[in-house]
């Protein structure tokens, strides 16, 4: 089996965490960082990884480290422009199979996509979106935005007195563009069909398009709050 090579450029705690996780999976890790003391620390901590100190957007560094045809390239430098250029070089010139980058300006997610870097992560955007959803929806245990929040996945528990209790799925007016994908009942998971009944304390996993969120919440008996309770 050939080695699975992953290149991580920039980032401190994120790079450290990622290197640890990737090495546990027996992947070949190449770390590039411009801070010398961080590089020294990493090379002591992960002797099996290759650690290089330098500007992560310089092609000669990529050549020296033989990153060509690597499986994954991850750019996490503070400057969005540096991340874009690093990813484009890795992808177009060094033929890395998959490139990822983080951005500090959420607007750059869409722009980078148009410029050919499709896997862009904006932590600002994701965290802000999660806090907003968790703060405005009652009794939502978990919320996962997909495709920049265009699609959402939620986990919610059915209350004792909810209108949907003891009703089959087919009789519940689930709005268009949303589904109850899974029911968790006493630890067992059920993929529901039209005749599946909903019981109190069932945990529902629902998938919805952003536009149908409020309707879905109303049907499930979860009011969307206009302001947060104190």
């Amino acid at each position: 089996m050939s080695v699975y090579r992953v290149v991580v450029v920039g980032g401190r705690k994120k790079a450290d965490f990622l290197a640890n996780a990737l090495l546990k999976r027996k992947m070949h890790v190449i770390l590039i960082n411009d801070t010398e003391d961080f590089c020294v620390e990493m090379s002591h901590k992960y002797p099996e990884a290759i650690v290089a100190c330098g500007d992560g957007t310089k092609p000669f560094l990529y050549e020296d480290l033989h990153i060509e045809n690597s499986e994954i390239f991850i750019a996490m430098m503070p400057s969005d422009a540096d991340n874009l250029i690093a990813c484009q070089m890795a992808k177009q010139i060094f033929k890395v199979k998959k490139v990822f980058c983080t951005v500090s300006n959420p607007k750059n997610v869409e722009i980078f996509k148009q410029l050919g870097v499709s896997n862009v992560i904006s932590s600002t955007y994701i965290v802000a979106n999660m806090i907003e959803q968790l703060a405005t929806l009652r009794n939502i245990e978990n919320y996962i935005p997909i495709e920049q929040g265009k699609v959402g996945l939620i986990e919610t528990v059915v209350e004792e007195n909810a209108a949907i209790c003891f009703k089959p799925i087919s009789e519940i007016a689930i709005p268009k563009q949303s589904i109850i994908a899974c029911i968790i009942r006493t630890g067992e998971s059920i993929i529901p069909k039209g005749d599946t009944l909903i019981y109190p304390n069932d945990k529902l996993i629902c998938l919805f398009n952003d536009g149908s969120k409020e309707d879905l919440m109303n049907v499930l008996g979860k009011k969307v709050q206009t302001h947060v309770d104190h």
Partner: peptide, 8 residues
């Protein structure tokens, strides 16, 4: 003054 910014 930054190459990468000019390119972006």
């Amino acid at each position: 003054d930054k190459d990468n910014v000019n390119l972006m």
